[in-house]
């Protein structure tokens, strides 16, 4: 697979080999970085970060990745300060920005915006979240974190907890995990169950799927518990949100029944779904997960720029 010039829009565009390759390159870069402190693969290259919707973590992680590769960054962090506010089309914004940069990272509130940007741009486009659709780099860093923690993904039992209905993170992660030999527990309040078509797709691909509302019952089975926040902004209806708000919390009492090796992950930011008392325990993997964002995004930037 020739990565130079490739767009990273949806985990659906990835094969298992693609995923494994990115994870391998990320690991190599992480090790190189540890040895040298900083790298210069992307010297002279410019990344444009176009964040039409605010996101601290993803934007900073991409920017940090580009700097660590020796490149530089331009961009904006909210649509309010751009000509989009004057009514400029997305296509025109992209055609303009690509004159200033070598690779574009885009986050946009509309689903499909990154795909459109990639069609318009000659330079590679990386999707950093398009509405409630995809966030492929999050999925890759989640897989990387699991692989680094366990040395493998095959054979693990993984629980996805929380808003499985609206959470794009868990949708993409579940789709990617279907490439591996895993068992999945989908744990959520009844109102926030994983969409039926995704569950069917997982089963068709041979994943053993359990759907449950019982977190305590599922805990002893798990190697990984992937927790998500119930995102108020994704609910079409405030009343529906209030019904499920605060319906679960991962704390030390709950984790007493877990395997000693259980790892708890979370894409962050969290509100109250993981108690801070878990942070100091051997189970907490979510800050390591944040760290993984940098090598994985370095790998994607370097590969699509064709500099690795």
């Amino acid at each position: 697979m020739d990565w130079k010039g490739r767009d990273v829009i949806s985990i659906r565009d990835f094969s298992k080999e693609d995923i494994e390759f990115v994870l391998k390159v990320a690991e190599r870069l992480e090790n190189e970085l540890k040895g040298k402190g900083s790298l210069d693969y992307a010297r002279g290259k410019i990344l444009a970060t176009l964040f039409f919707e605010p996101s601290t973590r993803t934007r900073l992680s991409f920017e940090s990745a580009m700097h660590r590769l020796g490149g530089s960054v331009i961009g904006f962090s909210s649509a309010a300060s751009t000509s989009v506010k004057k009514g400029e089309s997305l296509a025109d914004t992209i055609k303009t920005v690509e004159q200033y940069s070598d690779v574009i990272v885009i986050r946009h509130p509309m689903e499909g915006a990154a795909r459109l940007a990639a069609e318009v741009a000659e330079i590679p486009v990386i999707n950093a979240g398009d509405g409630s659709n995809q966030h492929p780099t999050q999925t890759l860093l989640d897989l990387y974190t699991i692989k680094r923690a366990f040395g493998r993904i095959d054979g693990l039992t993984i629980g996805l907890l929380g808003d499985l209905k609206y959470g794009r993170t868990v949708h993409s992660l579940a789709e990617a995990l279907a490439f591996y030999d895993v068992e999945l527990y989908l744990i959520s309040p009844e109102l926030l169950r994983m969409p039926k078509h995704i569950v069917e797709e997982l089963r068709e691909k041979g994943v053993k799927v359990h759907e449950t509302t019982d977190l305590e019952g599922a805990i002893p089975e798990l190697d990984v518990l992937y927790v998500t926040r119930i995102q108020r902004e994704r609910f079409p209806d405030e009343e529906e949100y209030l019904k499920v708000k605060g319906s679960y919390q991962v704390n030390c009492r709950l984790l007493k029944n877990a395997k000693e090796t259980l790892k708890v992950m979370h894409p962050l930011p969290r509100v109250d779904e993981i108690h801070p008392e878990v942070d100091g325990s051997e189970h907490a993997l979510y800050f390591r997960q944040v760290f993984s964002g940098v090598p994985v995004r370095m790998a994607l930037l370097g590969l699509t720029l064709g500099v690795l």
Binding site: S89, L90, A91, M110, G112, L116, N133, Q134
Partner: peptide, 24 residues
């Protein structure tokens, strides 16, 4: 945006289409 809508045919019987852009 000024875009021609595109759908991939996922299944013919029953008919199921996936939007090229939003993937629904």
């Amino acid at each position: 945006e000024y875009v021609v809508p595109r759908f991939k045919v996922e299944s013919r019987e029953p008919l199921k289409l996936r939007c090229h852009y939003c993937e629904r």
